[in-house]
Measured scan of single mutants.
Amino acid sequence: MPVRRGHVAPQNTFLDTIIRKFEGQSRKFIIANARVENCAVIYCNDGFCELCGYSRAEVMQRPCTCDFLHGPRTQRRAAAQIAQALLGAEERKVEIAFYRKDGSCFLCLVDVVPVKNEDGAVIMFILNFEVVMEKDMVGSPAHDTNHRGPPTSWLAPGRAKTFRLKLPALLALTARESSVRSGGAGGAGAPGAVVVDVDLTPAAPSSESLALDEVTAMDNHVAGLGPAEERRALVGPGSPPRSAPGQLPSPRAHSLNPDASGSSCSLARTRSRESCASVRRASSADDIEAMRAGVLPPPPRHASTGAMHPLRSGLLNSTSDSDLVRYRTISKIPQITLNFVDLKGDPFLASPTSDREIIAPKIKERTHNVTEKVTQVLSLGADVLPEYKLQAPRIHRWTILHYSPFKAVWDWLILLLVIYTAVFTPYSAAFLLKETEEGPPATECGYACQPLAVVDLIVDIMFIVDILINFRTTYVNANEEVVSHPGRIAVHYFKGWFLIDMVAAIPFDLLI
């Protein structure tokens, strides 16, 4: 008679799926529990143990900040960024110097990925580790590398530091407007667009060049630039800015003055950032001319202004700041037409079709709590990747769950009947059967004279019903998954307890 339990259901295979997918890609990662103190490590794979030199037993239950890997060259700011990422709910990448158990130093890129439950609360953290440099290539500990984003994938490793954006290309926007319009339909740009040429040739750093990471940081200074100062900065030398009595002219307006920039070969870094931020506020060169004239017309309804409409929906549905990093990277690809469009465009503009998908598509409701890094690593669709929660398995109709209350009560009843059979069957065979043979035949009273025979008949009927119930009862397979398919249940029961239950259900007393 089957006594099969499996009270692990309803099970959740999400954690096993993450481990299996990460292991298949030869990654070095740990999984931490966000619900406990210090976000203790609950799993670390073999790749991480080989990377740091510690065994799994030495890593388990330690804080996922990996303070046991810190050393003299470990930056405090990087460690603080990892700790801050564990307090938030967004994906974050941090470069930090770690030390192995043998004392060797290596520069590592740590990717902190939160995993949320159905309520939107962070319950786990996945920390992925990628070695960037070994100890002989690690720089000085005073050099802070965590304020910069990861290198873009479309640049060669040897040319990542030679990417320079020439400031004269930004200063000569109005001069290039006529050349853009003359391109017409034969050019790649839309009317009114501004073409910015980027020099990728390796050259020595000069005062006129600005690194790509500095251009990325310009967006942080746009908020500090007032509207009046932006307007004066875009007017140009024809209309000098008016300053109040006793007030000095704005240095932001002076930063885009061609006369002032041409007199000296070098520009201050602050002026460069502010000038680029001011130019980015204009949607095209037409807006710059309109600002000089004193009238700013409404933005025209053409394809170039609607190019950012799908980007707005993608940004609203993005799951991490990696989408913004990807957008900034692609927006700086050289030799393309940049349409400086305000994100607050007309909502009635139709979304044009684009061959290049900048932001990841909208994630469906079932995966809105899973970050983009987890979705990318697992390579699963929205119909396959579940949320991290207890999910009731989908069972067929008329199927009994093996952990249901009805099955528990039924098993206790069958257990009592088995005990009765084990006690009274030998007793009936030894004593009652002998008395029946010696006594007179009682054929007239039937079952009324033999109450134990009636009980034995009921017990046999219950055993037959138990066999039928076992054909529709779920079970737990070797992978700790609840199986509810009727065919698989029948095959599993035939290979197991079916023969024993059938022999126990045969009414031998009635056959004798």
Rank of each mutant, 00 (worst) to 15 (best):
V115I: 11
V384F: 09
V180T: 14
V132P: 15
L69P: 01
G226F: 08
I330E: 08
H7C: 07
P298S: 13
S104Q: 09
G6P: 06
A253H: 14
T201I: 04
P251Q: 11
C108D: 01
A285L: 12
G149W: 06
P151R: 12
E214V: 06
A268R: 14
S264Y: 08
D286V: 12
T270I: 08
R92G: 13
Q61K: 07
H368V: 10
R242S: 04
A350S: 12
S55I: 01
V198C: 11
R27G: 13
C39P: 13
E230C: 09
A303H: 04
D119Y: 06
P63W: 01
D119E: 10
F340L: 15
L171Y: 10
C44F: 01
R73I: 08
L212V: 06
L296Q: 10
H309E: 11
L109G: 15
V295Q: 15
K161C: 05
P297Q: 08
A190I: 06
V279H: 12
R176T: 06
A253E: 15
A303F: 14
D111F: 05
P310Y: 13
T145D: 15
L15P: 05
E208P: 15
D219T: 05
C49L: 14
T152W: 15
E37A: 14
E90K: 08
A211W: 01
A142W: 04
G189S: 05
L349Y: 07
L378S: 03
A382I: 06
H70G: 01
T329K: 06
C64E: 01
L87K: 12
V41H: 01
F129A: 01
E208R: 06
E230M: 07
G189C: 10
S26K: 14
C52T: 14
A169Q: 06
Q81D: 15
G6K: 07
S153A: 07
E118A: 11
N33Q: 07
Q81N: 14
E50Q: 15
P205F: 06
A244E: 14
A156I: 11
A260K: 07
A169I: 01
A85V: 01
R5T: 09
I288N: 14
H147V: 11
I363D: 09
D67A: 08
T174W: 15
G294Y: 12
F14P: 09
G158C: 05
G6E: 13
Q376I: 01
F125Y: 15
A228Y: 06
R27Q: 09
A277K: 14
G88I: 14
R20Y: 04
R181S: 08
R4F: 15
S26D: 15
L107S: 15
N220Y: 10
H147L: 11
S266D: 09
R252S: 14
L170P: 15
I18Q: 06
E91C: 13
A382L: 05
I42C: 02
Y54Q: 01
A382F: 05
R356V: 12
M133A: 13
P227Q: 06
L109P: 01
V374F: 11
H147P: 03
E214C: 09
E91S: 07
A79P: 01
L171H: 09
A9C: 09
L225R: 15
M133D: 06
A97W: 14
M124D: 01
Y99V: 01
A85Y: 01
C105N: 07
E91Y: 15
T319H: 08
C49W: 01
D197E: 01
A172P: 14
V132N: 14
D355H: 14
V122I: 08
S275Y: 08
L170I: 11
S239K: 12
H147A: 11
G345V: 05
L225N: 12
S272L: 07
K101G: 01
A80E: 10
N146M: 10
A268K: 11
D287G: 08
E118F: 11
T319Q: 05
K21C: 13
G381D: 09
I123Y: 05
L385S: 09
S26V: 05
A307P: 12
G71K: 01
S178K: 08
V370M: 14
V194H: 05
R164T: 06
L338D: 14
S313E: 07
S304I: 11
C66H: 01
A350R: 12
A32H: 01
D67G: 06
L200W: 06
H143I: 14
A285N: 15
S322I: 08
V194P: 01
S272F: 07
A290I: 06
A185H: 14
T174Y: 06
A307C: 14
P114Q: 01
S354C: 15
M218H: 10
E91Q: 08
R242H: 10
R292W: 07
V113Q: 07
I359W: 01
N128D: 14
